[in-house]
Design a protein around this nucleic acid. Structure first.
Lengths: 198, 198
DNA sequence: CGGTTTATTGATTCAGTTCAAAGCACGTGG
DNA sequence: CCACGTGCTTTGAACTGAATCAATAAACCG
């Protein structure tokens, strides 16, 4: 078990991947750096999710807490023998990998072909679905655990552009900013339409 | 077994994924369309590679031949029972999924954070490694089976920008265009440096 | 409250797109 | 075997969406 303060790293890109993790509470960002400081966030980890499973030997991303977080740690060797002793577990790993690959395809379109407003709308729709899945109920609000710069680095934009797009979506009455981090979706069909470029 | 003419589709996004495939000869592009015609190529399939394995029920991309190609087809049910009867096969599927996910991370940086010249250089380095792996020998030439528009849609650029960057790399004596589709790498360290933004 | 960090907004710049016009390669048929 | 047509590719000129640079303004926090 590990307690992370906000901004503290759980592991770094290139470090030894001898442990696997589950998020108990809090949230993390996963990302890579280009040597000159450019950063690409490749995903976010929310409670209940596994981390470090896909790697072999070395971690291929850095994981940092977005807020104070509690993480359950598990030796990789023990995890591997657990998987070996319970065959259906391997199927769920495979299933999970498939889902991640399908999600990656979506993100390719976002990063390669969508405009700034389409990216931000896609992101809000995606987070909203993810939070609803976790909560198990329908939600009209989403609380962003990450700042504007993290969203920007996830979407291949700058924090200024993300901020401008939020304002734009607010002015179109598609979302409402309850606080900096709590967003209410006022017009979900419109948000989804924007996300798909319609 | 199926023979495809250039530009012919093997399967379409959203179609029933009741078969899995191996490329015998030729090559294909995998991609998705946004309803307004914007396209993102998510990958290329070369001889010896499997297709349609990751999907459940429906294909999540369209696969089209880049050149006349020969494809071996295999009923999914038969493939699944084969995997079930030979446990190590499941491990290689998992290993393959891991590799694909790591490659996806690379592509996130390319699409989200790299400049046009860095993207094209990354692409050439990547293709070169892949061809060398397949050939089993060191190569100084790469023959591109795809046109400029396909490269552009893979890298999130336009065909014009790809063309301009090729000219730029040619003028810097980093590559030489033997023909439109055959590229000689004159200065591999320089190409790799450009790819990483150095 | 101050002080600090983070977000928003504004002005300007620039990389890459778009639109437009050659230039080339390649196949086909005379 | 060469002329012609067609479909890429390359190059040029102008435009534009997002980045960058630069102030505010708002939230957060001891």
């Amino acid at each position: 078990m590990r307690e992370l303060k906000a901004e503290e790293a759980l592991f770094h890109q290139g470090s030894d991947a001898s442990l696997v993790y589950t998020v108990i509470s809090g949230s993390l960002r996963l990302g890579r750096l280009l040597f000159d400081g450019r950063r690409q966030i490749t995903g976010f980890a929310l409670p209940g999710e596994f981390l470090g499973i896909a790697m072999d030997e070395l971690h291929d991303v850095t994981a940092e807490a977005l807020e104070p977080s509690r993480i359950w740690c598990f030796p990789r060797l023990r995890f591997d023998s657990l998987v070996a002793s319970i065959p259906p577990l391997k199927d769920s790993l495979l299933e999970r990998a498939r889902q991640d690959l399908t999600a990656a395809q979506q993100q390719f379109i976002v990063l390669g072909r969508k405009t700034a407003i389409e990216r931000v709308a896609s992101f809000l729709v995606y987070l909203h679905r993810r939070f609803e899945r976790t909560a198990g109920t329908s939600l009209s609000n989403i609380t962003l655990p990450m700042g504007r710069a993290d969203i920007a680095d996830y979407l291949g934009l700058t924090k200024e552009t993300v901020s401008r797009v939020f304002s734009q979506l607010r002015n179109s009455r598609i979302i409402r900013l309850e606080t900096l981090t709590c967003i209410q979706i006022l017009n979900q069909p419109a948000l989804e339409a924007v996300a798909e470029g319609e």
